[in-house]
Nucleic acid binder design. Structure first.
Lengths: 218, 218
DNA sequence: CCTACCGATCGGTAGG
DNA sequence: CCTACCGATCGGTAGG
């Protein structure tokens, strides 16, 4: 039977089980816990809405006690913003990569690429961030909304020249600005009905969208 | 000075001030108060979401005390359902009228009519009911959702033959089922960005949508 | 990060 | 419909 005295005599290192590897800077619990909160919050915000989710729900999802999220985030709102900002940065990144990786493409091919990437970011596995951004923006402060609007403008900027070119070549008949808004609506609404487990694939979805918008698959 | 006795002697009609017209059954306060709750709730649910709106807010909007909404509705959820159901019944009605009033139309003309009516129901003045239905369905019971799904199916049924005809004549290239989902998305998303006071008119919006979907204005 | 807690607010109800 | 109220839950904090 170990006494309290014996316990204090043991070397500090002995308290850590030998089999457990030392963690590097990048996997420090600090970042991991913060990350766990963001991921859990995204899932809950999407399923139950911002106002329908309690910070206790979020804490539990990350295996914490009820007050602990506030060690990582100043407020529930700050956590919401973190979810949305990470979602938008990820979306802008994926879009940039895709555009950079593709060689010289025709305007219809460019549109196809943008639509395809948009569906991936929106409907890909584990992607709750963008849906939350699309449907919970009401709960942000004006300042936070403005920051996100900047990222959204950056994202939309890639579409403008493509739509412009399609309009000038006669493939896109509608007014360019209104067409962009209607197109984003058609794509974004898919988070309401698309089910990855059944029905169409992302490829078929992309085909249908291209056919609808410019009357051809590419 | 009128005594209590004199009062009981007077004919019942004398109790009501002469200047105030008798109310018909349809404008009884009962219905008016219930209606006021529905209208106020729709506005608040749309602006702040279902979970972000308190029943006290709703009561105040209708000029009532905090507990009074529960005299008219069993629960907050029942009030939400009433908003959505009324919105959908109105939408189905408006659509039926429009279809009935129009003579024999070509398929593109039929599509234009449906799109135009859809925008009116969605974006017309004082129309918070449908936006609430589109964005707060998560807060319904499965049973309520099923009832609404029936009305929605009724609404969508008018579109199916039109899209089918356009597909067969080659004007609509996309798969009909996916096209319908994408089209509703394009239209429904407009509640997020359309501003009646500036920018496009409903007519221009309809033009753009028709041009985008079938490459022509009619 | 946990413990223990606070003031505020919430949906809803009993009784009139 | 109002008054008065209840139990539950909420976002957030102090102190460790």
């Amino acid at each position: 039977m170990q006494t309290a005295l014996a316990s204090t005599r043991a070397a500090p290192a002995a308290k850590r089980p030998r089999g457990r590897p030392r963690k590097t800077l990048d996997e420090r619990d600090d970042g991991n816990r913060r990350r766990a909160l963001i991921v859990g919050a995204a899932r809950l915000f999407r399923r139950k809405g911002f106002d329908g989710t309690s910070t206790r729900d979020i804490a539990a999802a990350a295996g914490m006690q009820s007050g602990s999220p506030f060690y990582h985030f100043r407020s529930k709102q700050a956590l919401l913003f973190a979810v949305m900002e990470e979602g938008m940065r990820h979306a802008v990144e994926r879009q940039s990569e895709a555009v950079a990786a593709a060689g010289a493409l025709s305007a219809p091919e460019q549109l196809r690429l943008l639509v395809r990437k948009h569906f991936e970011v929106l409907l890909g596995p584990g992607n709750d961030f963008i849906p939350v951004m699309l449907y919970e923006a009401r709960s942000l402060t004006p300042r936070q909304r403005a920051t996100l609007a900047g990222l959204q403008a950056q994202y939309e900027a890639a579409w403008q020249p493509v739509l412009q070119a399609l309009h000038q070549s006669g493939r896109l008949k509608a007014d360019v600005k209104l067409a962009r808004l209607l197109i984003f609506g058609a794509l974004n609404w898919s988070v309401q009905w698309f089910d990855r487990r059944k029905g169409a694939t992302l490829e078929q979805l992309t085909d249908a969208a291209l056919a609808l918008f410019i009357g051809e698959k590419q």
